[in-house]
Simulated scan of single mutants.
Amino acid sequence: MIQRIQSIYLFLVVVLSGGISTILPYGLDQNGEALLSQNNFLVLGMFTGSAVLALVSVFLFKNRQLQFVLGRINILLNFILLGVFVYWSLTLSGETMVSEKGIGMLIPIISIVLLVMANKAIKKDENLVKSVDRLR
């Protein structure tokens, strides 16, 4: 059931967290060099974890309950990643690590929106299956 809309949302999360996060910088240092996720193991691990969870969720279409739970865990992971970015941008002094914000800081927000839309579609499918079972 790869053609379901939640599979498309989850695949977009895989592309964002797995691919685009390595290309787009999440900030610029004091020398003007781009800070990429490959240079920071914490950020790379969280982006990779989010991509792996979304990819696993795509192929769990027969187990909608587990797919829904993995989506919520992935949302939580992206909130933690967003919190790390906000912490770095607000509490560190201006020129120690991140002096300018990059477009890569928006990736967790976009991923959260896509995951919420995927979870709504999964819940809608689950309710549809339950209603059909009631009619039998």
Rank of each mutant, 00 (worst) to 15 (best):
R72Q: 08
K101V: 12
L90C: 06
I73G: 05
P108D: 06
Y87W: 13
L12E: 03
N31M: 11
N119L: 03
M105G: 06
R72L: 09
I20P: 00
A54P: 05
V116W: 15
E126R: 07
Q3S: 07
A51T: 00
M1P: 07
E33M: 07
V86D: 09
L76T: 10
S50G: 15
K124C: 00
S57L: 09
G102C: 04
E126M: 07
F85Y: 12
T91A: 08
T48Y: 14
E33Y: 09
S57F: 04
M97V: 13
V84K: 05
S17L: 12
I112L: 01
V86W: 13
R64A: 07
L77W: 05
K123N: 14
K123H: 13
T91G: 00
G94W: 05
S93N: 12
Y87P: 01
I103V: 15
F61V: 05
I112F: 09
S111I: 08
F68I: 05
F85P: 01
M97K: 11
E126H: 04
L53T: 10
I75P: 02
V15N: 06
E100C: 02
L115V: 06
V86I: 14
V129D: 13
G104V: 00
G32L: 05
G83H: 00
M117N: 09
L66E: 02
L106G: 14
L44F: 13
V86Q: 11
G19L: 14
S99I: 15
E33H: 05
K124P: 01
L12V: 11
R134V: 09
M117L: 15
D29K: 01
Q65C: 02
E100Y: 13
F11D: 12
N78D: 10
S37H: 04
E33G: 01
P25R: 07
I109K: 01
S17P: 00
G102D: 04
Y87G: 09
I5K: 14
A118Y: 01
I75D: 08
S50E: 09
K101D: 03
T91F: 14
R4K: 14
D125P: 01
Y26G: 01
L92F: 13
L10K: 04
K130H: 08
A121T: 10
L55S: 06
S21A: 15
F61L: 02
V58E: 03
F68W: 07
L66V: 11
S131W: 04
Q65T: 07
W88E: 13
G49T: 07
I8W: 10
A51C: 01
P25H: 04
A54G: 02
E95F: 07
R72I: 09
A34Y: 13
I73L: 14
W88F: 11
L135M: 11
F47H: 13
M1N: 08
L55Y: 02
I112K: 03
I107W: 00
L12D: 03
